[in-house]
Simulated scan of single mutants.
Amino acid sequence: MVLLGLTGSGRSSCGNTILGRSEFWTDVSPVSVTSRCQRSGGVVDGRSLRVIDTPGFFHTCLSPDDVRAELNRCVELSAPGPQVFLLVLRAGRVTRESLAALDWISAAFGPQALSYTVVLITCGDALGAKPAADFLKESEELWEFVCSCAGGFEERSQVTELLKKIDLLMERNAGAHYTADMLLQADTAVCHMQQRILGDDHEEDEEAKKGAERLFW
């Protein structure tokens, strides 16, 4: 299981909750805390789990290329590859960054990764009595993304239900893993896209090029 999400979304805290102990470093800080992939494991509800925490998208200290390299490393750490990407999404106002974070999975791992993805909603207390589904449906972009994820969504407070949902996803995928070959295909596709945008149009100004680079990384 690989934890993904916007920096500050609570990935490390969720990993600790799932494992039932403090394995990943958490802190209230104005800067990103996790800078390297970290792996831990244990037995939870009779299941043997390996959980990998990753640097957040839009990290405050790492460059986009460094974040991308660490995200690639999570596939190596989970060889033969992760069976679940757990995208941690903090409930609250939808921002430009939170919407851009949704694109990171497809941009970094390719659209095939969505077949292995479950969305985990954190800070459910911010929703009050509002069901998580209603919160997600208030944003067309969020709801469309969740619907594109094979594992759907779950709330952080319900670890047992989350693990059941993950079991169903793994059963649906016949126990398959997201593999290094899939990652290579995603990297190749991104490189081709960047070359088309940045490589051929010499009349495009520098600021526009930087904007295109930010779009992908």
Rank of each mutant, 00 (worst) to 15 (best):
T160D: 14
P111E: 12
Y178C: 08
V119G: 03
S22R: 14
E171H: 06
R90W: 04
L198N: 15
L99R: 15
E144S: 14
E213T: 11
R11S: 01
C123G: 12
C61H: 13
F57M: 09
T160R: 15
E161W: 03
T188L: 10
I166K: 01
V190E: 11
L114H: 01
A150H: 11
V43K: 11
Q185G: 10
V190Q: 09
A189T: 09
A91I: 04
G110V: 00
G15V: 06
G56L: 01
A186E: 00
L163S: 03
F24V: 08
I18P: 00
E140R: 12
G211K: 05
A180H: 07
S32F: 08
V33I: 14
V67P: 01
M182W: 07
S40F: 03
S115W: 03
L19E: 04
G175R: 05
T179M: 00
D187V: 07
F58R: 05
T117F: 00
T34S: 01
K164R: 15
D66C: 08
F145R: 13
C147F: 06
G151H: 01
I18E: 04
R39G: 02
F58Y: 13
D66P: 05
G128E: 06
F135G: 05
W143R: 08
A174E: 12
L6Y: 02
L162D: 00
L127N: 07
Q195V: 14
Q83I: 03
L162T: 02
F135P: 02
T7G: 10
V31R: 06
L142P: 12
V84T: 14
Q38A: 08
A126Q: 10
V43D: 05
N16A: 09
E141K: 15
W104E: 11
C61F: 11
D167L: 07
W25H: 14
S13I: 03
G15I: 04
E76H: 08
K130E: 15
L102V: 11
A212C: 00
S78T: 13
T179K: 02
D103K: 07
F85G: 07
